[in-house]
């Protein structure tokens, strides 16, 4: 069974329909990169998956659990789906360690000592054990994003959703975040990543999904998408974005 299934997802804001029936399947251990022009519903899609935004129509399944069902305990489901935001959204009043630990003690009800060990291990994994006592305002953007990845990892998620994780970063800080994400992908984490970083897509994506106008235009493995896209618009977009964002990392 697929780890995640998205079926015919629709979302409308006022008169504008942002998602017009999106269907996706994600296998465990797979890294999917979602690309597309801005305003085509990529972020909305991610937010509908864990219902930070309530979809109007369609279903999302995590294994055999229907996320979109009114009867599901959404908090319990969200605890299994990591979410990494474009602007980090670390808890301003907590140190890096407490940011990672809060979900462990309050959501997973882990004893404090065990939670501290786990949080330190995750900070170490993203290379920030030395910054455990720092507040978000004392960290660079790249460091904040790595802490927020550690915060997601600590929950032992089945899947992590990345919403343009490097778009708010200065160019010289993008690499440190991407290398953490590349390592995660190679370690077998299941990830859906909305990004313009084509270097990342080429090196670790199992599949690239091109979205435009609220629908999936084309999807396939990176080699195929870069070399011989079936739809001209896909090739056009990929060329443009590769020029713009280069192939760093």
């Amino acid at each position: 069974m697929a780890l995640l299934r998205v079926e015919n997802l629709h979302k409308r804001y006022g008169h504008e329909e942002v998602l017009k029936g999106v269907t996706l399947t994600q296998e465990a251990g797979e890294t999917k990169v979602v690309i597309g022009p801005s305003g085509t519903g990529k972020s909305t899609l991610l937010r509908c998956i864990n219902r930070l935004t309530e979809p109007d129509q369609g279903q999302v399944w995590l294994e055999d659990l229907e996320i979109t069902s009114r009867r599901s305990d959404i908090n319990q489901i969200r605890a299994k789906i990591g979410f990494v935001f474009q602007d980090f959204n670390l808890f301003t009043h907590l140190t890096a360690l407490d940011n990672v630990r809060l979900g462990l003690t309050k959501v997973r009800r882990m004893p404090r000592a065990a939670a501290t060990d786990r949080a330190m291990a995750e900070l170490d994994r993203v290379g920030l054990a030395a910054k455990a006592g720092a507040y978000p305002a004392q960290l660079s953007g790249g460091q904040q994003q790595r802490v927020s990845i550690a915060r997601a990892l600590a929950m032992d998620p089945k899947l992590i959703l990345f919403d343009e994780p490097t778009s708010a970063l200065d160019p010289e800080l993008i690499g440190e975040v991407l290398s953490v994400m590349i390592q995660l992908a190679r370690d077998g984490m299941t990830m859906i990543v909305v990004t313009h970083e084509m270097g990342f897509a080429r090196s670790v994506a199992d599949e690239i999904v091109f979205m435009e106008g609220g629908v999936v235009v084309e999807q396939g493995p990176p080699e195929q998408m870069f070399r011989s896209p079936q739809i001209p618009r896909t090739g056009e977009f990929l060329r443009k974005i590769s020029e713009l964002y280069g192939e760093s990392s």
Binding site: N75, R78, A79, N89, L90, F91, G103
Partner: peptide
């Protein structure tokens, strides 16, 4: 900031927990 509530809910906190802890 509104992102604080969103990050707390994304972790699986209830609204009450998010208000109380964040």
């Amino acid at each position: 900031k509104s992102g604080q509530m969103m990050a707390a809910r994304a972790l699986g906190m209830s609204r009450g927990q998010a208000i109380g802890h964040v």
